[in-house]
Each structure stands twice: as structure tokens, then as C-alpha cells.
Write a protein that binds this DNA or RNA. Structure first.
Length: 686
DNA sequence: TACTGATCTATTTTT
DNA sequence: TAGATCAGTA
């Protein structure tokens, strides 16, 4: 590895940050300033200077970011070295630690990770058992619990500081929820971080061994860390404080999830002797786009002053368009994409992204794109792994790994129908409170099974037998795909699908999806990452993988326009970006306004703008269907923050032509396609 | 137990 | 508006 390879393509400020490999280092990296490059090159430099690659750990928030870094690292250092660096999410770091050490806290190593729907159903159970069904809403309650956990607050803390009875009730539910998780040997996402910190607190030995294992730490997107992550990092960094954090306070958009911008702003106070660097040269966007972004973000107070500049040239003006309603807006976007493609042969669909504030906004866009035959892919939103049959199959597999997982048992007990249902679950619940046996253990007990009625008893015993047989088969690890398929056959799920869906087409499609999961397992076995491919390892990977990460794997090969939320777009860049629905109440979102104020929404807008390399199109509408009712919309207040001279306004109103055409004619005539849906348009009479 | 129709309600972002 | 949930019936 040559010095040239490491430093050749760095600007002076980047190089300074890369060369500084001891003690606490803070890098403010504005959008598009080469943040990932600094991290990967810094790792390469450390290895070059003799740091053991196995002692370096880099933490990210998403698997996607981790994968990207790994890829880049492989091009910089020897593969053998790159492999030994820990590169992963906070959650995966903690999960790995807990698999080894969680015995200290009473769980066993084969714990399963509760996803959001597990959390919700456990929570509902807790609420029901305590009799708060009419008072407490599961969703809001879950938010409170999650926020408590990320601040390391116990139910008792919540109770003692509660002002109202409501909050004391929630504290009770919190406690119950925790114990239900514990009884099923489950952890939720927050627990992964929380219990890792608890273990460090409880066992200085474990902490010490982690410190000596990873002596050099790097943290990506540091502005998104919450209190727990901060604690974790601080404990791991210890006295050596060999820690480098990289982030941008202007891109802090996860405050609602407990992220503390102060973590990055106050970093020098927490870590004495910090050396700070500021990256301001942007390699991504044109001057026009950067000027707009700078002007927007300058309206925020309490931020670390910085000013992005670039050598990418002046660029074209930002196009701002008003359309009549969301259907017209969608047609406008599709038509514009088509004409951009027509005028620029080098532009690929891959270079284009449509960004929106909320997922539901994608629907109308999809319709227009499909109609114009523009290929697209949606990031986030209902993914493969969320389909019912896939989740069912996963639940069956989780039951193999963790027999105490009553959540999964409840999920699959009646799919397919086998004479067991709500009543059987009631019986099992009673039995559990009496004898402590988990559901999947209890069904093998003839005395208990006898209570289910004839058909139920027979299938319960049969199910118990199949489960225990395959627990044995899976115990040895390896051959996962094949075993899983046979297991799902034998337990009756695959054939069951044919009975569950009358429509044979649909049933086969769903079977196909289950086979797709089996394929994913086969792929996992080929490339299991670290250890031997066990079922438990696969399920963990599944649980810690979010939709944004998954998209790359099953993305179609042909070039497609990308649709996603602004949140999901962070860290990405596109030649051409459309920001749609730029209206008060949508963006900024009214609810987040109430909760967190304008600043975070403005940062979100800043993130959206800075995704664009050369062209930026912003649109808003006058009418929008909101909760099934037409609503009059006003352009977003953020648009006023962009200097006039950077913007070109275009109108995309069909008001005049619409009035001249009859209702039906607009839809069925050979006129421009954008008149589709005109029949749902509410005329604006003045 | 399983299905159907009616009612309700939530519409932000996600590791 | 549409999805999720619930209660009542076959």
C-alpha cells in the first residue's frame, strides 16, 4: 500500500483529519464533502502505521453505510486486513457482544430480537393484562418506552417523575412489557444497546476486554447518536480516547428518535484535547444548488457555522413548479423525466430520484411512472420481508431457535388452520401462569393438549413433535436452506398456504415468496460473514436489516428511477432530484412541527436539496386529498428561504384546459396523459 | 374455529 | 381514503 494511494486524492483538510490517528478527533463534514473517504482512508492510514486491523472498529447507523465502507476499504488495503476491521452498526456490535455475555443479565445466548410488530403485540398484551385497554394507546406508549430506554430510564424512574396518573400507568405497562420480553427470552432494538451498556457497568472485566479488543474507534453520522450510543462510545473509548467521530449537525434529522445534536456540538467538552477539522469543499453539487442549501440552513440557530463551496460550476437554476393537485404533480414529474431523458442521452434512470416527506406520497407517483412506462424502484415501504407469508415462515424458524418465543407461536398457531386458535392460546396462557411452560413447550404435554378438543390435541402433539425433531436437526448448523424448506413442509406450512388462499394463483405466489426466503438463506450460507452459518445467525441478520439495506440485494438490474423519503436519501446522491409535495403541513410536516419545531424540518429540507448533483426540481400543489378530504395547500414556507435569483418558476396548471373540457372527455380523449384523473379533480371556482 | 361485514382511526421519519 | 381491528354469525 503506497502513501500515494492513501493521500493522493485528499484535499488538505481531509488529509489533516486522516493523519491524526491518536486521541479524540472531531470531523465536521458537510454534505458531499467526502466523509466516507475520510473514514476509510483514515483506517487505511492507521493500518499503514502499524495499527492492528483487528483493533479498529467503525460504527455506522445502517448496514448500507457499513457495506459501502467495507467495499471502499477493500480497494485501499489488503483484503486480509480489511476483513479484520470491525465495520458494522451499533446494533450489530451490541448483538455480537450480547450473544457472548448476556448470561450476566439472565437472558440466554439464543435470545431473539423483537421487531416492531412483536413489540406492538407484546405491548398490547401488557396493556390488556393491566386493564388499561381504554386508556393507553399502544403506539404512543411504545414511543414513550423507547425514549425511556434510550435515556436509560427504568420504569421506576418514569413512575417517580410522572406528573399524571396516565404516565404512572404507562410506567406499569413498561414494567410489564419488559417482563414479557424477558420471559420469552427476547430483546427489542433499544435493549440491544441498553443491555450492552448495563453489562459494561456490571462487569469491568468485560468492558476491559472490549477496550483492549478495539483500541481505535470511529463513528459515522455522529450527529445521530442518542444518549445510549454516546454512553457506549464513551465507555469503549476509555482513557485512551482513541476516538474519531464524523458528522454534520446540519444533517441531524433523527431527533424524534432520540438523537442528540448536542453530542456532536459538545464533543470537545466531553473529550478533552479534541482536535477538530471542518470539511467544506463539496464535490457533489453545482454552485446554484449549494447556494440554495446554504441559504436555507443559515436560518437555523445553534449550529456549527460552515459554508459549503464547490468547483463543480455554476449549474442551472432550480426549477420550482406549482401544480393543481397531486395527480397533476405526478404527471409533471413523469413528463419532466421523459423530456430530460430525451434531451440528454447520457442520463440514466439510475441518476434520477424523487424524494418526498412521507411514504404514502409515493402512490400517485407510482401510478404516473407506470403509465409512462418509466422503470422505478421504491426504497423502504412494504418490502419483501414484511409480507405475511415471509413473516410467518420467519416465525416458524424463530420457534426453532427460541422455544420460549410465544410471540412467534401465537403468530403461526392458526396459519394454517389446524384446529388451534384463540381459545387454545387462552389455555396456554393460563397454563403458563401456572406452570411456567412456554407455549411451544406446553403443546407437547398430553395433559395440556387434551384441553384443546380432539382435532386441536392431535395437531398440537404433532406440531410439538415436528418442532423438537427439527430443533435437533438445526442444532448442528449448516445446510440451512434445505433444512428450512423441509421443516416448513413437514410442519404443514407450505401446503397449508394452498388451503389458506382460495385463489390458487395467489397461493402459489405466496409459496414462491417463501422459497425466495429459502434462497436468501442459501445466499447467506455462501457468505455468512463471520461465524458458521447457524439459523440463529441468519435470523439475527434478518432482524437487524432494514428495508433500505435490503433494496440493493433484490433491486432489479435495469436502470430505474429511485423513489424514497428524504430520510432514506441521506448519504446518497443523484444527478437529478425531484422534491415533491413542498407544501406547508406536508413539508414541514405539521405533526413534527408540534413535536420538534421548525429547525429539524429545515435540516431535512437541507438534506433533500444537497442530494442533487446538477439539477433540482421542487414542486407543490394547490389541492390535495388529505384523510379523504380535499384540502387547500400553500407552498412551503421554506421555499421563501431560497434566493430568487437561483430559482426559475414554471407553471403546470391545467385549470384553463380543464374548464374547457368535459369530465369524461378529459379522461378518455386522446389529449395529453396528464389529464388522467381529471374526473377526480375538484374545480377551483373563483 | 373461521369468515364476513361493520366500525374505527390514523395517516412521519426507522435501527 | 384505506387499512386494521372487532364483533357477531355460520
Amino acid at each position: 500500500m503506497t502513501q500515494d494511494k492513501i493521500f493522493g486524492r485528499l484535499n488538505p483538510e481531509q488529509e489533516k483529519a486522516v493523519r491524526c490517528i491518536e486521541g479524540p478527533v472531531l470531523v465536521f463534514a458537510g454534505a458531499g464533502t467526502g466523509k466516507t473517504r475520510v473514514i476509510t482512508h483514515r483506517i487505511a492510514h492507521m493500518i499503514d502505521r502499524g495499527v492492528n486491523p483487528g483493533c479498529i472498529a467503525a460504527m455506522t447507523f445502517t448496514n448500507k453505510a457499513a457495506n459501502e465502507m467495507r467495499e471502499r476499504l477493500f480497494s485501499l488495503v489488503r483484503p486480509g486486513d480489511a476483513k479484520r476491521v470491525f465495520l458494522g452498526t451499533f446494533h450489530s456490535y451490541c448483538a455480537r457482544l450480547l450473544r457472548k455475555e448476556i448470561g450476566l443479565l439472565g437472558w440466554t445466548a439464543d435470545f431473539t430480537i423483537a421487531d416492531e410488530s412483536d413489540q406492538l403485540s407484546i405491548l398490547k398484551q401488557a396493556i390488556a393484562e393491566l386493564g388499561f385497554k381504554d386508556e393507553i394507546q399502544p403506539n404512543g406508549c411504545l414511543r414513550v418506552i423507547s425514549s425511556c430506554k434510550s435515556q436509560m430510564k427504568e420504569p421506576a424512574d418514569l413512575r417517580s417523575e410522572a406528573q399524571y396518573q396516565d404516565m404512572r400507568n404507562i410506567a406499569d405497562v413498561f414494567e410489564k412489557y419488559n417482563s414479557l420480553l424477558f420471559l420469552q427470552n427476547m430483546l427489542d432494538f433499544d435493549d440491544l444497546l441498553l443491555l450492552a451498556v448495563r453489562i459494561f457497568e456490571k462487569s469491568p472485566d468485560v468492558l476491559q476486554s472490549c477496550r483492549s479488543r478495539h483500541t481505535h474507534l470511529l463513528v459515522d453520522e455522529y450527529q445521530d447518536t442518542n444518549f445510549l450510543q454516546f454512553r457506549l462510545i464513551r465507555m469503549l473509548a476509555g482513557d485512551s480516547m482513541n476516538l474519531c467521530v464524523v458528522g454534520d449537525d446540519d444533517q441531524s434529522i433523527y431527533g424524534w428518535r432520540g438523537a442528540e445534536v448536542r453530542n456532536i456540538l459538545d464533543f470537545p467538552q466531553f473529550f478533552k484535547g479534541t482536535r477538530s477539522f471542518k470539511l467544506e469543499q463539496n464535490y457533489r453539487s453545482t454552485k446554484v444548488i449549494l447556494d440554495a442549501a446554504n441559504a436555507v440552513i443559515a436560518r437555523n440557530d445553534d449550529r456549527h457555522a460552515k459554508n459549503l463551496w464547490s468547483e463543480c460550476g455554476e449549474g442551472e437554476r432550480i426549477v420550482e413548479t406549482g401544480a393543481d393537485d397531486e395527480y397533476a404533480e405526478a404527471s409533471y414529474v413523469a413528463e419532466t423525466i421523459e423530456s430530460l431523458k430525451a434531451t440528454s442521452s447520457r442520463l440514466s434512470f439510475d441518476d434520477i430520484a424523487i424524494l418526498y416527506r412521507s411514504n404514502y406520497q409515493s402512490r400517485t407517483l407510482e401510478e404516473s411512472l407506470r403509465e409512462m412506462q418509466i422503470p422505478y424502484r421504491i426504497v423502504g415501504a412494504r418490502s419483501f420481508y414484511e409480507r405475511r407469508e415471509v413473516r410467518d415462515a420467519i416465525a416458524y424458524l424463530r420457534l426453532i431457535v427460541n422455544p420460549r418465543d410465544d410471540q412467534s407461536f401465537s403468530r403461526i398457531v392458526a396459519s394454517p388452520p389446524r384446529g388451534l386458535g384463540g381459545k387454545a392460546l387462552d389455555i396456554l396462557r393460563v397454563e403458563k401462569s401456572r406452570g411456567g411452560k412456554s407455549f411451544s413447550e406446553a403443546i407437547s404435554d398430553p395433559a395440556i393438549a387434551a384441553e384443546f378438543g380432539q382435532k386441536g390435541a392431535k395437531s398440537a402433539l404433532e406440531m410439538g413433535k415436528v418442532l423438537s425433531k427439527w430443533r435437533g436437526e438445526f442444532a448442528s448448523g449448516g445446510n440451512l436452506a434445505c433444512k428450512s424448506e423441509n421443516f416448513l413442509k413437514e410442519i404443514g406450512y407450505l401446503d397449508g398456504l394452498l388451503h389458506m388462499y382460495k385463489d390458487r394463483e395467489e397461493a402459489l405466489k405466496r409459496q414462491e415468496n417463501v422459497f425466495e426466503l429459502v434462497n436468501a438463506m442459501a445466499a447467506f450460507e455462501k457468505n455468512p460473514g463471520v461465524e458458521t452459518p447457524t439459523l440463529s445467525a441468519f435470523l439475527e441478520k434478518y432482524a437487524l436489516y432494514d428495508d433500505n439495506d435490503k433494496v440493493d440485494e433484490d433491486a432489479e438490474k435495469r436502470p430505474s428511477v429511485t423513489l424514497m423519503t428524504v430520510h432514506a436519501a441521506k448519504g446518497l446522491e443523484f444527478e437529478v432530484v425531484f422534491i415533491v409535495g413542498m407544501e406547508n403541513g406536508i413539508f414541514p410536516h405539521e405533526r413534527s412541527l408540534e413535536e420538534r419545531g421548525l429547525d429539524e424540518e429545515r435540516r431535512l429540507f437541507y438534506v433533500a436539496i444537497t442530494r442533487a448533483k446538477s439539477r433540482l426540481f421542487i414542486s407543490h400543489v394547490s389541492f390535495r386529498m388529505k384523510h379523504g378530504q380535499a384540502s387547500l395547500q400553500k407552498p412551503s414556507c421554506f421555499l421563501g428561504d431560497i434566493p430568487e435569483n437561483l430559482v426559475e418558476r414554471r407553471d403546470y396548471s391545467r385549470r384553463a384546459p380543464f374548464r374547457m373540457r368535459g369530465r369524461g372527455e378529459a379522461r378518455f380523449s386522446s389529449g395529453p396523459r396528464r389529464f388522467k384523473r381529471a374526473d377526480s379533480y375538484v374545480p377551483f371556482d373563483d
